[in-house]
Design a protein around this nucleic acid. Structure first.
Length: 349
DNA sequence: CCTCCACAGGAAGCGCAGGAGT
DNA sequence: ACTCCTGCGCTTCCTGTGGAGG
């Protein structure tokens, strides 16, 4: 029983990394089962908030996969490590640990975790542990602690992004199963692929786009999926993403966003952090919300920017200081919908 | 060339929630 | 009941800075 190498996989989103790994490990599990080799595969997505985006939660999640329940908080971290370690080493087995979106984890919680994990392997007596790291960030591995780097990337695989032609192939495969022949009008596949290729070759996006376009065509009573349905689909996907994001934000985030919407009713379209903060403070007064400091609001603006709800970029107004230049990134209709949504959420009027 | 604005954004740390052990 | 641990949102205090106006 040779110790399997650690493996590092990187490539942009939607290039099939996760699917490939899952497929491979599944067939590995089958072979192992046939030959009575004790193999366990654990898959963890490090990006999922509230599950495993900190050291404690990751290890707790891992332990959970081995049937050990760990509370969300309360234990010292090294205690959790011990529980996990014991669970792995409790019997003869090979364990494959898949850490998806590992770059997110290291960015948020530091690479000490990865070092600890790779070291566990050396201390295991009975079992063997092999780590598969999946990263969307291509340069991520270069910024790692050299010790982690050498042990984690014993083997490396790069998934290049799909180009438009490859996405077309994928879409055609899927279209055969999902659509009756001739339903897709000319150029629909090509257009979907082109959209997705522009988004760094994300095949998942392309498939979703095609699916939603199909739904829209069906609902509008069209016999065929037309090019315009793709535009509508892209619009719809984006709109729903934003509305969903807005609705699930905490109250303070919603208040900051609402302040920006209030400002945008004037004739200006571009605002600065200070403008928003002033309006925000007034708003807090009105709706009985404890105002946060400008420092915090500044972070919130940054996070709203990350969500794509607003655009914020740092500019310098020379003598008049350095600040963020902020605009709404949504269309008029969408902004109105958001406004209505926020009014209910914040209990205004 | 220097100054100085209006913030950006890093660092430390606080208070709370929630859980374990004793 | 009490101590010890963690995560999380937040405050406080701080240093850094691009470029218009002097």
């Amino acid at each position: 029983m040779n110790k399997p190498s650690n493996l590092f996989i990187y490539g942009k989103t939607g290039t099939g990394k996760t699917v490939s790994v899952k497929y491979t490990t599944n067939s590995l599990l089958e072979t192992a089962f046939k030959n009575k080799i004790p193999l366990k595969v654990v898959y963890v997505n490090c990006k999922l908030k509230k599950v495993s985006d900190t050291e404690y939660r990751l290890v707790a999640q891992l332990a959970k996969e081995f049937g050990k329940m760990i509370p969300a908080t309360g234990l010292p971290t090294d205690e959790v490590y011990k529980i996990f370690f014991k669970a792995v080493d409790s019997k003869n087995q090979i364990v494959i640990l898949i850490l998806d979106e590992i770059d997110q984890l290291a960015k948020k919680a530091g690479d000490a975790i990865l070092y600890n994990l790779t070291r566990i392997n050396e201390e295991l007596r009975k079992s063997q542990l092999s780590i598969i790291g999946i990263s969307n960030d291509l340069v991520f591995v270069d910024n790692l602690d050299p010790r982690v780097k050498s042990s984690l990337s014993e083997e490396e695989i790069l998934f290049p992004p799909y180009n438009a032609l490859q996405i077309q192939d994928i879409l055609r495969e899927r279209a055969k199963l999902a659509f009756k022949q001739g339903v897709l009008s000319n150029g629909v596949i090509e257009k979907c692929a082109a959209y997705a290729a522009r988004e760094h070759g994300d095949a998942r996006r392309a498939l979703e786009l095609l699916r939603v376009a199909g739904e829209i065509a069906e609902r509008s009573g069209s016999q065929k999926v037309l090019l315009k349905h793709i535009d509508l689909a892209e619009n719809k996907i984006e709109r729903e993403r934003i509305l969903d994001a807005v609705e699930t934000q905490p109250k303070q985030f919603q208040a900051v966003l609402y302040s920006l919407i209030l400002l945008s009713k004037g004739k200006n379209l571009v605002f600065y952090t200070g403008d928003i903060y002033d309006v925000y403070k007034d708003l807090c007064d009105k709706i009985n919300l404890r105002p946060l400091t400008q420092r915090r609001v500044s972070d919130i603006i940054g996070e709203l920017d990350m969500l794509g709800i607003i655009n914020a970029r740092i500019i310098s107004k020379g003598r008049y200081g350095r600040t963020r230049e902020i605009t709404l990134s949504t269309s008029k209709e969408l902004t109105q919908k958001i406004e209505v949504l926020l009014k209910t959420a914040l209990d205004i009027d």
